[in-house]
Amino acid sequence: MSTTVTTKEPASGIRRAAAGGQAGDSVFSALSLGAGVLILAVLAAVAVFLSLQALPTFRAPAEEISGGAGFFSYIWPLVIGTVVAALIALVIATPLGILVALYISHYAPARIAKPVGYIIDLLAAIPSVVYGAWGTTVLASSLVPFYTWAAEHLGFIPIFSGPASQTGKTMFTAGIVLAIMVLPIITAMSREIFIQTPKLHEEAALALGATRWEMIRMTVLPFARPGIISSVMLALGRALGETMAVALVLSSGPLMASLIQSGNQTIAAEIALNFPEAYGLRLSELIAAGLILFLITLVVNMIARAIIARYKEFSGAN
């Protein structure tokens, strides 16, 4: 596109180059402005669509909503289920992802680091329905002994209260499957940032007599902190919205504290399981649930940005 603009000018040294550069600049800035506006427009359209379709739910009398006690009573168990599943995933995947990334970037010899990094990247390419199938057929049943043990010995903690599920299709299993699914996001992004830590600062730490772990704590982790937060938030977004894996793995039911019994449900899985047969008010209800999920994700992102902004003054950027 920019070539057609530049060839219009007569060939005469520096003027032509300057004019071509300016035309290229304005074309590029128009394109990028257009792309930015388009993204905002799509986002607004989605929000408007969700709101309009959800409107009947908010207007309907309480007894017509599923459960018969209004939209709030219907949605809050799903919100909690969604958040809990995502939190289980992050509690497992964040430390593991960071450790694996550190191992690849700062401990493993190159001939091991490369294949390990490659395998982690491959995990991200596996479709979520495969994770769901694996979780429900293999993982769930193999976790049953652990759940039985937990119910017996840790049952006094509400999240482990028995009787344990004998199929293993529980919230905890769903959380573990989600953890494996978001692990590549955290690992790949963290590793990318860990290896960008300036050598200059790593050497400063080592020259003061820091061990390798102390060097990582003094330079690599602080340098990477905004990146780690971004990767965790991205992973959280993925875990909140993940549908297939949860729908297949979880034997859903009403909200309950125990994570090792059947029960609980997430918004995304609720929508996926019910959408095909829904019409009328039920359809509007599910879309309203989708709107709530959209808002949760939005809030999560805003919190992430606020956290990153707080560290700006001390970031490596200045």
């Binding site: 300036p198 200059l200 600062h201 050497e203 400063a204 730490a205 020259a207 003061l208 007599g209 820091a210 061990t211 102390e214 003094m218 330079t219 602080p222 340098f223 902190r225 560290y311 001390f314 970031s315 490596g316 200045n318």
Partner: peptide, 25 residues
């Protein structure tokens, strides 16, 4: 050791930079 390019730790305050080596181990 002092290097060719100044390399204070960017995520630390002036005070923490001075104490960085002292707080090791």
């Amino acid at each position: 050791m002092v290097f060719q390019r100044p390399n204070p730790f960017p995520t630390m305050s002036i005070r923490d930079n001075v104490l960085a080596g002292v707080k090791l181990n």
